[in-house]
């Protein structure tokens, strides 16, 4: 009886959460980088990963779309499920997975192509548009979602590398959004940007959560507090605490979390 109620409850969490990770271990060669992490990431929510440098938050983020596969010495163990499907299953094609789980990187990395081609890159690869008109539509919609349409609509065929840093990052977000992902992973998306560009990107993140599940790694606790609903605190490869952002910042349960957010460690 007791056991049955337990399984029932787990089913409920499964349905709510977009990604659920259980017992995730990551090794870089002999280095045990992530130790036994369990996390449930909810749909249409911004989840922030915070923690000092080298705590494994970026590594864990890169497990969620199997970007760690491109690193030879990296080994991932444990169970990560997207919509209740094991993403490390042999039948799953990491390339398809990455179309569903988009990623935005720390440094803006537009391709050396035009703004239009940057955004159209994903849709072209995955065959999302049947005609040129449809592709134009996808590009415009993505650039609008990336909150950069008004700034670039007159120069869609200018090189993407000619934009300012903040514009480049929003272009990269638009590019990631264009493949219609279900989850958007952001690895310190504002660390190379100035305060004005940062606030623009943060605003954008808040809008993106209407359609996507967003996971953001950040060094800035203020940023985590501003944009996220859920916060996970990592320390030395361990997930120390995970909960509502407000609770983590006002009433942390773990003394290590409290030390970090008050600035005593990190």
């Amino acid at each position: 009886m007791n056991e049955m109620r337990l399984t029932e409850r787990e089913d409920v969490t499964m349905a709510e959460s977009k990604i659920s990770a259980r017992g995730v271990q990551v090794y870089y060669g002999d280095n045990h980088a992530i130790k036994d992490v369990d996390v449930d990431i909810q749909d249409k929510t911004v989840t922030a990963f915070i923690g000092p440098s080298g705590c494994g938050k970026s590594t864990f983020l890169r497990c969620l779309n199997r970007m760690n596969d491109t690193i030879d010495i990296c080994r991932v163990e444990g169970d990560i499920r997207l919509d209740n499907e094991d993403i490390y299953d042999k039948r799953v094609d990491p390339v398809q997975l990455r179309a569903k789980v988009g990623m935005v990187f720390q440094k803006p990395n537009p391709f050396p192509k035009s703004i239009y081609d940057n955004v159209a890159y994903g849709p072209r690869i995955h065959g999302l548009a049947r005609s040129k008109a449809e592709l134009d539509e996808i590009v415009e919609k993505s650039l609008r979602r990336g909150a950069i349409w008004d700034e670039v609509k007159d120069r869609l065929h200018a090189p993407g590398t000619g934009l300012s840093g903040g514009q480049q990052q929003r272009l990269c977000i638009a590019r990631a959004v264009a493949t219609e992902p279900e989850v958007l992973l952001m690895d310190e998306p504002c660390s190379a940007l100035d305060p004005i560009a940062t606030s623009q990107v943060e605003e954008l993140i808040s809008e993106l959560k209407e359609n996507f599940s967003v996971v953001i790694v950040t060094h800035s606790m203020q940023q985590a507090a501003r944009v996220s609903q859920k916060t996970a605190f990592f320390h030395l490869g361990v997930l120390v605490e995970y909960g509502e952002t407000a609770q983590i910042f006002t009433n942390p349960r773990d003394p290590r979390t409290e030390s970090y957010i008050t600035g005593r460690i990190g």
Binding site: I125, H126, C172
Partner: peptide, 18 residues
């Protein structure tokens, strides 16, 4: 060619040869 460009492309679900 910077690794970031490769990451960007893989992150969008492109294969190696694409």
């Amino acid at each position: 060619v910077p690794q970031s460009l490769r990451d960007g492309s893989y992150g969008l679900g492109a294969t190696k040869s694409e």
